[in-house]
Amino acid sequence: MVGGSAMSGSKNIILERIRQALKKEDSGTTDDILTLPDIERSYEQQSNLSDEQKLHLFAERVNEYRAITEVIDEEEIGERIQSICSVSGIKSLAVPGGIEEKWVSALDSGVRLLRDEPEPLTKEELNNAAAVLTGAFLGVAQTGTIILNGGPGQGRRILTLLPDFHICVIRQEQITGILPEAIIQLDMAVKESGKPVTMISGPSATSDIELNRVEGVHGPRRLHVLVIKQKS
């Protein structure tokens, strides 16, 4: 059919086939789609959960993925992170740039801190890191999801990928009720920064063997979420 046609040849062929299939003229522009009114959206776009309900639902749903969620006060954060490290035997902890210093302020000398800034960590360094500590952009209560988008305190995607243990800190104010409330914020963020987005719902898992869910094939096998309670 197309034989050795150049790429632009295939482009024209495909566009021509589409226009024939739709029985329409070549407008050559994207004017039509830009002027279409939005489709009807009668699904729920906002939840009516209170802040307290969102917090509880989020914690419950994250836990259902066999992750661990703890709700803590701001003052406790440094100590909590140190105690997670000592309980789980974490000897090296990777952190992105822009992390809040008080999160790592209470770490004792048994935990080596690996900073991704100013000099980025190598793949090998990250692969050997026992754990990673990051913040998050948003949380979704309904689905127990945390969302990263490369902002300050979250870092590059590789940081939360190679270490086997992810400690993620999120503030109660960042938790939305249902997914559409998170998407609207992501929409704006992507248009502004163009940075990649990762949605994380529990630790890495597979159900490929007889549909038994098993934690961890390639991503972190353990996920520990610390929610900082909103000050009332």
């Binding site: 749903r61 689905t143 990649p196 987005v197 719902s201 991503g219």
Partner: peptide, 25 residues
């Protein structure tokens, strides 16, 4: 998609990328 597919509220990972991003990926 997740509820119809793996029958989960959300599958573990969703990766969204927009072209290339400096120093990331």
């Amino acid at each position: 998609l997740p509820r119809s597919s793996t029958a989960e509220r959300m599958n573990p990972y969703n990766n969204f990328w927009t072209g290339i991003s400096d120093g990331d990926g």
